[in-house]
Simulated assay, not measured.
Amino acid sequence: MDEDQVNKPKGHEVGMMIETMSVEELEARIVLLNDEIERLRAAIAARHQTRSAADSVFKF
């Protein structure tokens, strides 16, 4: 097994050491994190829609 494969984390962790990462690796992390932010925003929007639908059903 290649030593680089062993030492590189599979994902990003908040606060992880970035000093040894290349520009390309940092840019890839930014893409990864932006994708995750969009996924989280979509989940929030879906929950707001569910809540609004529930609120409209139970209004008296």
Rank of each mutant, 00 (worst) to 15 (best):
Q49N: 07
L33D: 04
D4Y: 11
R47K: 12
K10H: 05
M1I: 09
R41Y: 03
V23S: 09
E19A: 10
I30Q: 11
H12K: 04
F58A: 07
L33S: 05
A46K: 10
I30W: 02
I44Y: 14
G11T: 09
A53R: 02
S56V: 01
K10F: 10
A54P: 00
L40W: 01
M21Q: 15
E38P: 00
S22E: 12
S22K: 06
S22H: 08
G15K: 08
M21C: 12
D4L: 14
D4G: 04
N34I: 08
P9Y: 08
R39V: 09
L33C: 11
E36S: 05
R39Q: 12
S56T: 04
V31P: 00
K59S: 14
A28V: 02
A45F: 02
A28Q: 06
V14Y: 15
N7C: 01
V57Q: 03
K59A: 13
K8Y: 07
V57P: 00
A43E: 15
L32H: 06
T20I: 08
E19L: 13
F58E: 09
L40R: 10
A54G: 02
V14Q: 13
I30P: 00
E27T: 10
D55G: 01
R41F: 06
V31I: 15
E13P: 00
S52A: 12
Q49S: 07
M16S: 12
E36P: 01
